[in-house]
Design a protein around this nucleic acid. Sequence first.
DNA 1: GGTTTATCGAAAATCGTTTTGCATACGCAA
DNA 2: TTGCGTATGCAAAACGATTTTCGATAAACC
Lengths: 338, 338
Amino acid sequence: MATRRDVARLAGVSPSTVSRVLNDNGYVADDVRKRVHRAIEELNYVPNRLARSLRMQQSRQVACITPSISNSFYLEIVAGIEETALAHDYTFSLYSLTYEKREYLDVVLSGFYDGMILLAPYEMEKIVALSELAGRLPVSLYCDRERHPDLPHVYVDLRRAMRECTEHLISLGHRRIVFMGYQFSRPTQNPRYLGYRDALESNGIPLDESLTRLFPDYQDTLTCGYQTVCDLLDRGCSFTAICATNDLIAVGAMRALVEHGLKVPDDVSLTGVDDLEIASLVTPTLSTIRIPKRQIGNVLMEQMLAQIHGDAAAPRAVEVSTTLVLRESVKAPASPAP
Amino acid sequence: MATRRDVARLAGVSPSTVSRVLNDNGYVADDVRKRVHRAIEELNYVPNRLARSLRMQQSRQVACITPSISNSFYLEIVAGIEETALAHDYTFSLYSLTYEKREYLDVVLSGFYDGMILLAPYEMEKIVALSELAGRLPVSLYCDRERHPDLPHVYVDLRRAMRECTEHLISLGHRRIVFMGYQFSRPTQNPRYLGYRDALESNGIPLDESLTRLFPDYQDTLTCGYQTVCDLLDRGCSFTAICATNDLIAVGAMRALVEHGLKVPDDVSLTGVDDLEIASLVTPTLSTIRIPKRQIGNVLMEQMLAQIHGDAAAPRAVEVSTTLVLRESVKAPASPAP
DNA sequence: GGTTTATCGAAAATCGTTTTGCATACGCAA
DNA sequence: TTGCGTATGCAAAACGATTTTCGATAAACC
């Protein structure tokens, strides 16, 4: 690898002059500037970022941690992060939660990164004790669960979103609506579930426990959706609509319905959450709550940059809004409840 | 940030001794070792990776470039890369091709990375002139197109795979089989298309140009699949099976067929390539050529490590094998061709 | 002729490690 | 007493850049 010295030697100038050219610092005559640039070209010289980062005490790189590297929901957010990072000449590294707690801290705090973006709505507790990080390094969180008191974060109000979604079903005439999703440590911590209950309550529909299906976290979502519907039908449970807490669960549910000879949406309406690509690929297309993933990524990175630049005026919490996207999988029930 | 000096001071030893403890070289008495570890704990000391990398001339980090950061096909490969990287205490950064050619070289060659893994089956030419990299930095490629003469790479033989797939359809009795996929600069560079033709030829079925549908690269795959089928049907083209060159195209095609009142697989059989998650989520489930994405990632990283460690015996080209996965979307045609 | 402005070189300090050579102990055996 | 292995400290060079300071030389200006 060519160094600054080599460039200086070839251009017949001193290393300081090369620095002056590169960083636009001090007086440099035009012809000297050209000579230096030519030497850089010729040697394929690229300034060593390690040395620069070490000296400058900043790397222009951020670490980004996702629960799962192949989960397209998070990856869309990551794409948003990359977009904004790129625009500001920043680079990022991607980690998934397969790392152990301790290793994270070490890697993240080792000087390689100027900050850390955490996409960990559910698993927040599983990883780094956030308090250990606070103050040591700029951190920016994505939460879909509850707002974080201390750290800068971006969040969506899924309680309200799910309430609106459920209320839409109710307004179409649905009364027996299944809720299916993850267990969470306590159901009252599940904003999606709370939103569902809000909607029932404000419409005077009693909560039927048999229509609530919560399964443990970290299971295969598709299978969960599939088996839960099979179980419901085996028990002879009657319902006209299903709210699933994400699109994959909904797709699993859809398969189970079809295999049992039920038509979506004629016999059962179905909704998801996330608006993954798959939601508009399945037949029938899936109604869902769109979470603006790319935008979330943008905002997370902007928040990170604000912290790195010590911009005290930057907002510590940003809400991004969801949209109810109505597609083919929802319609009024054939025989509206009395 | 605490440095090695601070640790040494607190433990009452010299900085060299701390190094000896950390790197396990030279003599260190047990009680000294304990004192040092305690000091490290207390100060939350984490060795500075920038300084270490600069000194060691290696960062234990590799750059990974994908055509698209939110394409789940590549992300599965990336997950495989991460898996192996992690096992060897390596870290990686993810880039997508939104970067410009020049910027890549700079970032990748700036000392931050020990190597570069390129997932660029189609766009290989669009990015870095590979020759510029060769020799400067370890590189490992994923190719699904043609084997690369110079650089270490992992490849799949899609010509053979597509041939087997098409032959399977033929063996079921299909004669009028549509091929749809990307254009490529020349059709003869498209291994999938070649495989399709191989199968027709060896079974004495004449190639019907009207059944070959190639569309330009970089278009939205889903829409391409959808519109191509619409166009075929509008022209009154008759066919009993479709080979799509990836799963998304196939899903788009599936939607078009359903909307035209055709049943899959009763009226038309359908196959894809990749075996994305979605292939087993759609109804009917999609038959496809499985590409072992995770394994590809593993092998890519292993190849990278071999290069970094200067292991001359490591193979420069590794073929991973595909599998024809038969699901619901394929069956014998209702009225076999005469 | 003196002062200012433009231009460049030389040198040093710094970032936090790793690594090496050399000095200094100590304990123990020959 | 000498010699050797073990255990530790100290100092210095190196990695490759940034930044600053200090000069030295011009040319330009009044």
